[in-house]
Design a protein around this nucleic acid. Sequence first.
DNA 1: AATAGTTACAACCGCCGGGAC
DNA 2: CGTCCCGGCGGTTGTAACTAT
Length: 264
Amino acid sequence: MDGLLGVRKGAWTKEEDDLLKKCVDKYGEGKWHQVPSKAGLNRCRKSCRLRWLNYLKADIKRGEFAVDEVDLLLRLHKLLGNRWSLIAGRLPGRTANHVKNYWNTHLRKKYGKHIMEDNKEDHQKTMVSGPKVIKPRPRTFTKRLSLMNIGIKNIASTTTTTSMDNKNNTDHQEENHSDPISPLEKDIKWWESLLYDTLEANAGNTCSTGSGSDGEPNKMEKFSAEQVDPAAAGSNIGIGEAFVEDHKSFWRDLISMDIDLWDL
DNA sequence: AATAGTTACAACCGCCGGGAC
DNA sequence: CGTCCCGGCGGTTGTAACTAT
């Protein structure tokens, strides 16, 4: 099944895997255009890269998805859509390809219909009340952009620009005129909202409708409710500020970890 | 046992954005 | 500023393994 230029396609053999492993061990990841010649493989660069990233890399987690992974996948997919690489970034050891395959084979039939219906409902609501969607934006940080630079520690004063900020700067700049919250802060708060919700689920609150024993919603519930429906927060639209403050160090660690990973 | 249908997942393809020149 | 190359992404396909008839 060779291509026009004699490049091999199809399933990888054990020998090819070994050659690729040795090559990456010796020269490191990247420079994929050089890998086929250096490894002595009759494969295209893309094929080598894909094989490494999806199969050979040491920290790849294989096998069935755990319940909490599925739960997080569902939540992330609802928020991000088919942004498999972003979703995979939140599932340690899982690749975008794994996540995509798992969704397509296990979850799409089960949940895809519901999600489509949800989206339909959302759309109808939107037509009446206007959009209130918080959209995450994929961010790429340059090497020189340290955690300190992006102002995690002093987030409100940040003026740092990312590539995505450049790309989307029109709306962000417009927002900045009237909104004291920086675009970066908005995105981080978006992640906070997502992950607080996730924490809530993982903390054993398997039913998110549950309330505290005194009948009052707990902080997690209140925060989640505010995210889903800003009206639930009364005049304090959007964020449970006190709760965020309580857990700021947690988020610093989490976000810091992400940036470290992206920087690799 | 043979065949058809289904599922799971590895791999390919085409496109896009960023960086170098 | 335009072009080319590269890495990366999401959609799709091919096929082996499994199940039902």
